[in-house]
């Protein structure tokens, strides 16, 4: 029906466009800034990286040679560093995700109900999220110095001799994870608070009238109802943990003994320090695949949850 409507312009001239065509054109005009930005800043570079991953490209000589899947073979089958780096990334994620989520949920449970000063505490725990990551890492790097560091001096007061946090591989990984958790936990806390506040109070009141304990209310009502939010938070945090770069760059530089050399930092090293742009692109494509799989898992689980 609309197809047949012709718009009459001022002065009696008929527009050649149908209403639907005009609406489509307007719609495209409205979304064009986003679409253009997406193409220039995301799709274009993504396709370029996909192509570069099949080349051996030295940035200095500006010579790119097509090598097919040789870079992928090198990364996945020949280069032991790659699997060491993947292992580090997995350890980082396994350390960060449960710690972050447990702390976020605890804080959310404590701060989801209104009480005097609740806004202050929420702000305090959220503030690190909006703090500059580099500034955060620099401050922690100072605090985590060996004998002279603030943390070790505090530990010394209670008779504990702290390690040289950022110079011992295992402690360095732990230190990076914990400081990252403290920085980012506020974001997940807010997501959990929103999810908790969306649970109708009637369920809890009904359970309480039936004589349920606080633990039972949490395990049988709150936790199951938080499952969709938990799933989203888990996937987002896992993806974020695979992309960590700034913390590693500033606090450890991938050391000591490559103990904190994670995938994103390794890509940076290959591309920006050694100028092996082809190989760095290959690594970026592998990371893209990992993140894509995690995202698809999230989508699938959410669909399943909604059914």
């Amino acid at each position: 029906m609309t197809d047949s409507i012709h718009i009459t312009r001022r002065g009696g001239q008929k527009s050649r466009l149908t209403l639907k065509a005009r609406e489509m054109m307007e719609a495209w005009l409205f979304v064009s800034p986003t679409v253009i930005g997406f193409i220039i800043f995301f799709l274009g570079p993504l396709l370029a990286v996909a192509y570069y991953s099949l080349t051996e490209w030295n940035l200095l000589t500006q010579q790119a040679t097509f090598v097919g899947l040789a870079n992928f073979e090198n990364a996945l089958l020949e280069n032991p560093d790659f699997w060491h780096v993947v292992r580090n990334s997995v350890i980082f994620a396994l350390g960060l995700v449960p710690l972050n989520m447990a702390l976020a949920l605890t804080l959310a449970l404590a701060l989801s109900r209104p009480f005097r000063g609740v806004v202050f505490f929420r702000t305090v725990f959220f503030a690190p999220v909006v703090t500059s990551a580099i500034a955060w890492a620099i401050v922690w790097k100072f605090m985590l110095q060996g004998e002279g560091g603030f943390i070790n001096q505090v530990l010394a007061l209670v008779g504990i001799s702290g390690p040289n946090w950022l110079r011992e591989p295992n402690w360095a990984m732990a230190a990076v994870i914990i400081t990252r958790v403290i920085k980012m936990v506020g974001l997940n806390m807010i997501l959990y608070i929103a999810a908790l506040q969306a649970i109708p109070r009637d369920y809890e009141e009904a359970a309480r009238l039936e004589g349920a304990s606080r633990r039972q209310i949490f395990s049988m009502i709150t936790w199951p109802l938080l499952a969709p939010a938990t799933l989203v938070i888990m996937v987002i945090t896992t993806i974020g943990s695979f992309k960590v770069f700034d913390h590693i760059y500033q606090m450890t530089g991938g050391g000591p003994e490559n103990g904190t050399l994670v995938l994103a930092f390794y890509i940076y090293q290959q591309g920006f320090k050694f100028f092996n742009v082809g190989y760095a692109s290959t690594l970026a494509m592998i990371m893209f695949a990992i993140v894509m799989v995690l995202t698809l898992v999230q989508v699938a689980l959410r669909r399943k949850g909604m059914e």
Binding site: R167, G253, G255, P256, E257, N258, Q269, K273, F274
Partner: peptide, 14 residues
């Protein structure tokens, strides 16, 4: 030079 430094770094850490 950059590759040499990167290759050395973990061994020098040790």
């Amino acid at each position: 030079a950059p590759q040499l430094l990167a290759a050395m770094a973990p061994r020098v850490d040790a």
